[in-house]
Structure formats: structure tokens, C-alpha cells
Design a protein around this nucleic acid. Sequence first.
DNA 1: CCCCCTATGGAAAGCGCTTTCTGGCCGTTA
DNA 2: TAACGGCCAGAAAGCGCTTTCCATAGGGGG
Lengths: 342, 342
Amino acid sequence: MRDRIHVTLEDVAKAAGVSLATASRVLNGTARVRPELTERVRRAASELAYTPNPHAQALAGTPRPTVGVVCHDVSDPYFSTVARGVMRVAGDNGLLVTLASTFRDPYREIAYVSMLRAQRAPAILLIGSGFEDPAWERALAAELEPYMRGGGRVAVVSRHRSLRVDSVLPENRAGGAALARALVDLGHRRFAVLAGPRALTTVADRVGGFRDELVKTGVPLSDDDIVEAEFTRDGGYAAMTVLLDRGLSAGCVFAVTDVMAIGALAALRDRGLRVPADVSVAGFDDIPIVRDLTPPLTTFALPLERLGEEAMRLALTERRGPRNRVIRVAGEVVIRASTGRG
Amino acid sequence: MRDRIHVTLEDVAKAAGVSLATASRVLNGTARVRPELTERVRRAASELAYTPNPHAQALAGTPRPTVGVVCHDVSDPYFSTVARGVMRVAGDNGLLVTLASTFRDPYREIAYVSMLRAQRAPAILLIGSGFEDPAWERALAAELEPYMRGGGRVAVVSRHRSLRVDSVLPENRAGGAALARALVDLGHRRFAVLAGPRALTTVADRVGGFRDELVKTGVPLSDDDIVEAEFTRDGGYAAMTVLLDRGLSAGCVFAVTDVMAIGALAALRDRGLRVPADVSVAGFDDIPIVRDLTPPLTTFALPLERLGEEAMRLALTERRGPRNRVIRVAGEVVIRASTGRG
DNA sequence: CCCCCTATGGAAAGCGCTTTCTGGCCGTTA
DNA sequence: TAACGGCCAGAAAGCGCTTTCCATAGGGGG
């Protein structure tokens, strides 16, 4: 018996001398069963090391124990830290996580949502910025809406436009503003921004908040001072290089993510510029590694793991009413040694 | 029709005016079907946006499109980089990846394998060092063996003992030795080692290779020079602190992973010691970030993404004969600025 | 003492798909 | 012309589970 490929509920029922129905009821606690039989079934199940077949359960209508998570790239510390939070909460609730990396291809994201839907995942989490592309947004919504109508839960981290779903929103705009204020307070007056692709909502928010606050303070930031690049370490390096080639006039560079800031620091080092003596650099996110850089990075710190935890919790708890819930997550400016006085 | 929660094969068959069997045959290419019917089924399927229910397929005996991966912690750059490789290959083959983090609890790993098995995942990948604990090893084998007998594929990265499965083995022992040699060549004679938990095979191999090579060269390394700590950044910090409190006599510190080395660098910085002027530090793995540290870290570079890719490929390709395959992956010593002349 | 109601276990339907088994309609061959 | 073999499409079984619907037994009330 032990050596059969798969122990089925029928085996358990037979061993316990009860019917399938009874065995099922005992194992799921669905209905009252005489204590004696309950005990027999329990023992049989554990002796046979019975594990229910989730596919059969899914087919029979029970919610699946695997939630889906779609992010841009697991190997990016931002996503892997958020994913960590997701997985902890998932693990605590006995759930597995199906994690997909889109490698930043928007349509791959939709393809994954479709696969996850087909899998009948009870919940889908979308981590990371959305794209500002109407066609794409419609296609995604077309995939998500029927899914939700069918009882699927959806929660997103860090995107908002046009998606009627529960979401966890880090304070991107306010963060950008707070950082601008803090840098101005340090005495800086000439800024440059290393931005990610404009199509990402996160980028628009962070840069927007940063710029608006500067404008409010009377410090100008022209479009020329904003360089767009890939949302990666190498993107940051490239953008910083462009800036340097142009003849850097800014005394402080704001990279919209810490990952890009790391690239920027490398570019500066390679050109022999000192941070913060020659240029100050600030990032955004507070991924774990930035404490250990030299100099440690000034940044807008977001509780990354918490973003993931909240999203998972959102997807786990019933929502009442049709309104989508929004959890705004605050952050704080952390001044470290990468920024000096302006 | 479009608005039904789920379009089933029956809907497609009905729309095309054929039987379920025929529809299934067309969609799977299982058997010849008259071209005209084929066409009708195809069109019906695409018009209804039909997506097969993987659970029903699984139940009916078709292999699942989701492979399972178990690692210690996604947010550790080592694992997330390896996972990246896995996911790329998986994505290229139209597979989803179910990723689980054990948070370094050995028995959680077994629990996950059990869940993955129950899911009927066609393949399971175990990433990261195993534990040297006979009871645990037996329990894991007891879970894996029936799975493989039932046709499940298993591949592991970085562990070997007592598991008869296909594996990808980075040259941990040789790497430790090569690093020892390189450091001795730089002139170092007094070493200390920041080791992870001894129960991890990876640790044993790396430290073993390192120590054996030193002994061969006539350089002593006593047990007192080896400090054991958590396999994390903070573990590295703690171990380095212990060493410093004891009064560091070594001129070169070898941390068995880059992540621990990062912690060690932080501890040294906090104590006001300069690297490499006062102490040299070397790591192992070459996770992406170490290039960007100050000073950049000397390390034994492993092609991390490739480890994941190879493992995924191993699990994807049929193996002939009962022998388990082993792919040894070489690495190379990369000397950077964190090590000076001894 | 009988009837009805409740508590509990079993039989069976059904989830959506694959695949074997059957049977009808051809074209062949003797 | 009759018998036979091939090819294809449909019917139906079965994957493992949940859940509804019944049947039965036991207890309480009339």
C-alpha cells in the first residue's frame, strides 16, 4: 500500500472501513461524524501518509492552496524583498506561491495572469509598477475582470490607474516630495533626476512629486535635467554617464530607485568623482543593501516586506461591498552619507 | 457565452458541432481529424477564448505546466539570481514556476516538497545546500523517491550527499581551494574564516577546500580561526564582531558567502578598520552587488544564473538509464580591491 | 406502542478533461 | 457481389474529490 504512487481518499476510506463521503467529511470537518469513525479515518490517513490531490479538489470546487504572484524580476532586490513579505504571510496560511517574472515585458504579464487564471489560483498579486499604455491596460483589465467576477481575488502593489482592484500604494508622490524637501533643506539647489521608463506609473509619481515640490520651493528642474533609462543598475549607470558626458551641473542627483542609484554611484566612481564631496546621490526604496554601500545611500525608505505582506493579507481577507480597498503605506526620508550639504 | 465564468471544452465542442472527444483531439493534436472539423473546432475555441482547465487536465493524466522550486530565501541575492536563471528557462518552455521559501527551516523544505508532489508538479528543483542530518535526509528521500518513481523529475543545485538525483554542483571545494591559493599568492599567511552553519554541505565543502589547500601550502588554520554564524548578512556581521572582540590576528578573512562578507565589511567599517589596508576580505559566489561595494569584493565567482538554467534543463530533459546526472559548474577567482598584499 | 423527526452514514452525481472502446462508412479484394 | 479491413468520430469510462440527496437507525412525544 505504502508503495502505491498515490494514496487516494478511497484507500483511506477502505482502510478505515467507511465510505468516501465519510472520509472526506472527517478530513475537511465539513459535517459531524461519530467520534469513533472520525478517529479511525484520522489514523488511516496518517498511517497511509495521505495527501489530497489538489487538482481533484480544485475540480470539485474547493479553493486552491496556491496563490499567484507576478513581478518584473525576482532578482531585483526590490521585488525579492516584497516577495519575501508575500511568502511569509502565504506560508503562515499554508499557501504556496506561484511566482512569475515578466522580465519587464508588459504583455508577458498579461499572459501570466491568464495562466494563473486557468490554474484557478484563488488570488493573484501584481507587484510593481503598471504601464501607462491604454491598450495594455484594457487587455489586462479584460483578463482580470472575469477572473474577479468568478470570485478570484486580486491585489496589486504600487499601481493604480484604471484598475479597480485592492491595492497597496507606497507613497511615491509624497515620497518624492519629501525627499526633494529634505535635499533642499540640506542646501542643494541644482538637481538632476535619473528616471526609469516614463511609461511606468511609479516613475511618473516619484518624479512628479519630486519636481512639484522643487517648483513649490522655487527651485527649477527642467526636462533636460531628467534622464530616462532602464529601471536597472545598468540603466542607472548609463543615465549617470549621459549626465556626466553632458557636463554635470547638478550638485545632487536623485535616482528614482535605489537599484539605479547603485549604478549611478558606480559611474561616478569610475569617473573619479567623489560622493558626496563632488556630487550627492539619493535613491528611493531603501532596499537592504544600500546600508552597506560606501557611502551608505540617502533614500526614501519604504517598508518593502510590509508591502508584500499587506498585499497578501488584502487578497486573503474578504472584501465587503464593491469598493476596492487601498492601503497607503508611508515611508520616511533617511539621510545617510551619500548626500552632503549643498 | 463570453460572460460565463469559465469556457469549457464542452462549450467549444457544442459551438463547433462536434463531440468532446473530437474537440479534445483537435486541440491536442492527439489524432487525425478531418480538416473541416479541425478548422471548426479551432475557430470555436479562439472565438470563445477557451483556456483548458489545468486541473482537469492534470486529473485526466496530462503533465502539469508548473514546476516547483524550493529555496531558502528568495530575498537572498544568491537564490534570487539562481531563480532568475530557472525562470528564464521555464518561461522559454511555457512553464510557470511555483517558488517556495523555507526560511531555512529544513522540515519546511520537506513539507513543501510534499505539497509540490500533491500538486503533481512534473518537476521539483531544490536550490541550495542540504543539511547534514541523517533523519532529515531520510525524510526527504522518503518524500522524493516515490515521487520520482511516479515519473516526477528532480534536480538539485548545490547538494549531493545521499540523494540519488540529477544535480548541478558548483565547485565549492575546488573553489575554496583556489581562493586559498590565490590569497596565499597575494602574500597572506594568517587567515580567519566566517563560516555558515556546519550542518550545511556547502559550508563544509567551501571551508574544507579552503583549509585543505592552506594545510597543503603549510599555512595553519586552527578551529579557533573559524567562526560559525547565520548564513546571512547579519550573521557575517556578528561573526566578524566576535573575531574582532577576540583580538583579530588574521590579515585576511574569508567569508563563505558574499552575503556574509557584506556583513563582515560593515562590521569592520563600524570598528574603524580599513579594507584592505588593515584587513583583507574575500567572499564566495559573486552575487551581482559585490562589484558595487567599496571596496569591490574579491570572491570566487560562480555563474549563478547558469546554475539555475542548468538545473531547469536537467529537469526538462529525459534521462536515460538509472544513473543520476551531475553537471559540475566551474568558477574562477576574481581578485578585486577588498584584498591587498599580505 | 407507534409515528415522526433528527442525527448520521452511504450512494451517486458531477467538476472538465483525456483516452479507450465502439461502431459507421468507406474502399478493397476475392 | 459479399466479406473484410481502415479510418474517423462519437459514446463512455475514469482521474480523485466534494456535496447533495437518501436511507436508516434511534429518540421523544402523543
